[in-house]
Design a protein around this nucleic acid. Structure first.
Length: 566
RNA sequence: CGGGGCGUAGCUCAGUAUGGUUAGAGUACCUGGUUUGGGACCAGGGGGUCGAAGGUUCGAGUCCUUUCGCCCCGACCA
């Protein structure tokens, strides 16, 4: 490519609304331009990078014998009604009617469509397993798109789905996909972590997210200091604490606690560690068909993890309950506890199972119970509700957990038969019995990966593309195109590299040295050959973007030298 | 969806409080010239329904009403 003919609109200033490095540099360097909230155009450089990432994904999928398909972007709403997700997905689904008044949605993900393709076609265990994927534009009408390509409404995603006769085969494929995803991110030169995650509204198990480590990431993940364990905060677990505070000595009793409502107040009132308090968190659980108040109980020293809590009651979401609402429902805010509580759904954290010497609200104004033995409670549901904190122990080794931020670039999980049952996608097993297909799903945010690469690979001058993502590997910069010697060497090298299959661009613009250098740095070509005034001494320079160094080399063997480096 | 902010040249922004020449600057763009190792200089030039609609007024970028868009914080996010 010739720079003088290329459409690469670089700018000195970034749009005001760009905050993240990836957004600022991708805009300034002419990779993308915004059209509307959460909608972006890919300019030639951006499109090249996008295609490079797609190619890597395609190559790795081919190695696993996954087959590429392309499903229509506009999908009939009936499929979404069949699976029941038209309600669950809510406003993120962009719906519209065609001229015949039929309802359609723009695909935000394609489970339904993919199951629809295989149902009545994959009808025998002999045809299984099967892994189909596509790389395709998706649309989610996000309430609040932000951060450029990081959270756009229209974006490119690779979504793959596998179909199996049983769980065991699904597990095999799941592991194979996890390895493939790992290879993809390694080829992209990304620092990432595969973490345990919540599978969200879609349902399923074995949920794992691929997180690119970056301060700008929107997810908090807990990682172990010693082993490979990492988990999204929404799903993170911890080991049982080994440092248990000394238990207070008290027989079961009701105690007057005037206006003592919070865990902190109780702790100082009784001089007892919050570990021995029962924290009561009231939430309103919203279901598809109604709502109710739910009480979550955990140790005073712990905090409620809302996603875990939501899953525990199988709710669409949890919202806060006002004190007025509680009073109206007959509860006493500040003095609520698990004993003798009626007419409300109660969920207990695992930590409270068999807990003793506890202090809890007496469900009576200004009274708490002390010396409570939780084992007196009958028919109680215990589950994990705790949000892990930095410093908590790793659940798998003796390491310590700490927080870090991550960009979710991939999410894989085992769907099981959720969709195949709902959409009646069944096959005949060896015994001739009809069974629903067992499914896995594997997503990867392709356009988000562009942003992720830059989040991890940039400096204050601009982008620093990695070997496999660079829009052009080599930039040949002719410092002064009016200098015949410079220009002819540039042209000669340009043709030689092009013929050798190197992705090369020649900066033959009628601009000054500084202007062209700034662009080279901003765009972030991995290598730039600078043909300039040093040519008088038969020398040229090789500028290496990553290290920001310029190496003086003899002009006569620059071609061979650079070919070696590439 | 709650709270806040902003819409003026391709881009970054001034001008709006207190209405009053032909609406400005920088940058980018075009022409000519000088330059040619860090976004150069001189001269000339093109480019605007001041987000939109309605209203007040002799007169609106500026005041009033409505509306649309964009951004930020939060909620949400397979």
């Amino acid at each position: 490519m010739r720079f003088s003919k290329a459409f690469i609109p670089t700018a000195k200033e970034a749009p005001t609304d760009a905050l993240l490095a990836s957004h600022i540099f991708l805009s300034r360097a002419g990779f993308i331009s915004q059209v509307a909230s959460g909608l972006y155009n890919y300019l030639p450089l951006g499109k090249r990078v996008l295609r490079k990432i797609e190619n890597i994904i395609n190559e790795e999928m081919q190695r696993c014998d996954a087959q590429e398909v392309e499903l229509s972007f506009v999908t009939p709403a009936e499929l979404w009604q069949e699976s029941g997700r038209i309600e669950k997905f809510g406003k993120e689904l962009l719906r519209f009617r065609d001229r015949k008044e039929n309802l359609f949605v723009l695909g935000p993900t394609h489970e339904e469509m993919m199951v629809n393709i295989v149902r009545n076609r994959l009808t025998s265990y002999k045809q299984l397993p099967m892994n189909l994927y596509q790389i395709k534009t998706k649309f989610r009408d996000e309430a609040r798109p932000r951060f450029g390509l990081m959270r756009a409404r229209e974006f490119v995603m690779k979504d793959g789905y596998s179909f199996h006769a049983d769980e065991e085969d699904l597990n095999r494929e799941f592991n194979s996909m996890q390895e493939a995803y790992k290879r993809i991110l390694e080829r992209l030169d990304l620092d990432f972590r595969i973490v345990e995650a919540d599978s969200g509204a879609i349902g399923g198990s074995g949920s794992k997210e691929l997180m690119v480590i970056a301060d700008s990431g929107e997810d908090t993940i807990a990682i172990c200091s010693k082993c490979e364990y990492g988990a999204n905060i929404e799903a993170a677990k911890r080991s049982k604490s080994t440092e248990i505070p000394e238990a207070p000595e008290a027989d079961f009793n009701k105690f007057k606690t005037p206006d003592i409502k919070s865990i902190e107040q109780l702790s100082s009132f009784f001089h007892v560690d919050a570990y021995y308090m029962v924290k009561t968190v009231a939430k309103r659980a919203i279901y598809e068909d109604g709502d109710e108040i739910v009480f979550f109980f955990l140790r005073g020293s712990d905090d409620l993890q809302e996603v875990k809590a939501t899953n525990a009651v199988n709710a669409l979401e949890l919202v806060d309950v006002s004190e007025d609402d509680l009073l109206e429902a007959g509860f006493i805010p500040g003095f609520m506890g698990p004993l003798d509580i009626l007419n409300v759904r109660c969920i207990f954290d695992n930590e409270l199972e068999n807990a003793d010497s506890m202090i809890c609200g007496a469900n009576e104004v200004d009274y708490h119970y002390v010396g409570v033995d939780m084992s007196v409670l009958k028919d109680v549901v215990f589950t994990d509700l705790v949000e892990v904190k930095e410093g908590d122990g790793c659940p798998y080794c003796d390491g310590v957990l700490s927080y870090t931020k991550g960009i979710e670039v991939g999410h894989i999980f085992k769907l099981g038969t959720t969709y195949s049952k709902a959409l009646k996608a069944e096959f005949l097993n060896e015994k001739g019995q009809s069974e629903p297909l067992v499914m896995g799903t594997y997503g990867m945010g392709v356009s988000r990966l562009i942003a992720a690469v830059i989040e991890q690979h940039h400096d204050d001058k601009g982008c620093i593309w990695t070997k496999e993502t660079a829009p052009y590997t080599l930039n040949i910069m002719v410092s002064n195109i009016k200098d015949e010697a410079q220009l002819s060497l540039g042209e000669e090298l340009y043709n030689k590299f092009k013929d050798s299959g190197v992705e090369v661009i020649i900066d033959d613009r009628k601009e000054r040295f500084g202007f062209k250098m700034k662009d080279a740095e901003l765009i972030g070509f991995p290598y730039t050959i600078i043909i300039g005034k040093e040519l008088l001494n038969s020398n040229v320079q090789l500028y290496i973007r990553k290290t920001d160094e310029k190496i003086m080399l003899e002009a006569k063997n620059i071609f061979e030298k650079v070919i070696d480096i590439l």
